[in-house]
């Protein structure tokens, strides 16, 4: 890969990550309305997941033919990714029920540090960690914690 393509890919990755954050920001406001006016978080998340899956499967239905090419290891890791993410959502809900938000928010908000730690353990060969990224992550976690606590 040449340097220009690599730079474009990195920029695309940053924009996609910030786009995801923006999308999650919209969904947080939707979630607030749903939990206040419609139903319980677990029920809402189940239906939202179903609609998310159907929408994406309809848009990218041509990709589905490649499903037969996925090996067992990849299936296992996709399953684990889905399971771990869902466990996170469920546990956050129970954490909020059992402890005040000023305790739960900083802990759950620190998940990028957990991601960096697991990445350091399991992805050492493919991902480089550096001090600057760690400082950036700590500042984001601190900033996000302040925003949550101000509410």
């Amino acid at each position: 890969m040449n340097k220009q393509t690599e730079s474009k890919n990195i920029l695309f990755g940053y924009l996609a990550s910030l786009g995801a954050a923006c999308s999650y920001g919209v969904s947080a406001n939707l979630a607030k309305s749903i939990v206040n006016n419609v139903t319980e978080p677990l029920v809402a998340t189940s239906f939202a997941l179903m609609f998310g899956f159907i929408t994406l499967a309809l848009i990218y239905f041509k990709q589905l033919v490649n499903i037969v090419k996925i090996n067992k290891k990849t299936f296992l890791f996709l399953f684990l990714a889905g399971m771990a993410g869902s466990t996170g959502v469920g546990c956050q809900y129970y954490a909020m029920k059992n402890a005040p938000v000023f305790i739960v928010a900083p802990i759950t908000g620190s998940y990028p540090l957990f991601a960096m730690f697991f990445s350091f353990i399991f992805l050492r060969k493919v991902e480089k960690q550096n001090f600057s990224t760690l400082i950036g992550a700590l500042m984001i976690i601190l900033g996000v914690t302040l925003i949550i606590l101000s509410k």
Binding site: L80, T87, Y111, L113, F114, F118
Partner: peptide, 8 residues
């Protein structure tokens, strides 16, 4: 929750 999202 935090370790779930991190490992995911």
């Amino acid at each position: 929750a935090a370790s779930g999202w991190g490992s995911s």
